[in-house]
Amino acid sequence: MESIIPYYARWIREGKLQVSSEWNKNLKVKFTVQDPCNLVRKTFGDALAEDLRFTLKACVGEENFIDMNPSMSNNYCCGGGGGFLQNPYKEERIQYGQKKLDQIVATAADYCISPCHNCHSQIHELAEMAPHHWHTLHLWTIICLAAGVLCRNERTYLGDDLREVNIPEWDETEFL
């Protein structure tokens, strides 16, 4: 059993997955990343967290990545895990998420990459309550944007700032 994330990093290093952060050179849109507990602390450790950062930095530019504090194996759970999203304790789940909310706000990032569905749902919901709104993305979305193959109809989670950025020239789809 493996995670796809080290493969993303490996394919980028091998040149098989050609991504570029050129699109963000002038835009300087800021990104942070959530370390999913199940992937990082509980299973693959900091090696996976490093691959996750390598992949993201290759896509958005090193200078546009802002890490959370604390991070990697020491990062906080967002509160979407362990079945929290399916239990009746919604108020407690949001209270639990306050630590994550504060962490993301402190990065002042415009986007939080969440390569886990539980994290994605929770962090997406937390953004609604934050004084500084951010957008929540799957990792594959930003990889495809940086590879120049992300169509408009695959940009549901992108903000207005990135809806028309690096669109493939052949794309005739419409934003969903």
Binding site: K16, L17, W140, T141, A147, T156
Partner: peptide, 22 residues
Amino acid sequence: NSREPGTEPEEMIPLWKILHMV
């Protein structure tokens, strides 16, 4: 995850594109 085929199938496409490109 079931969420993609279940509620937002277009989210499967970026993953497929990556696997295709490599």
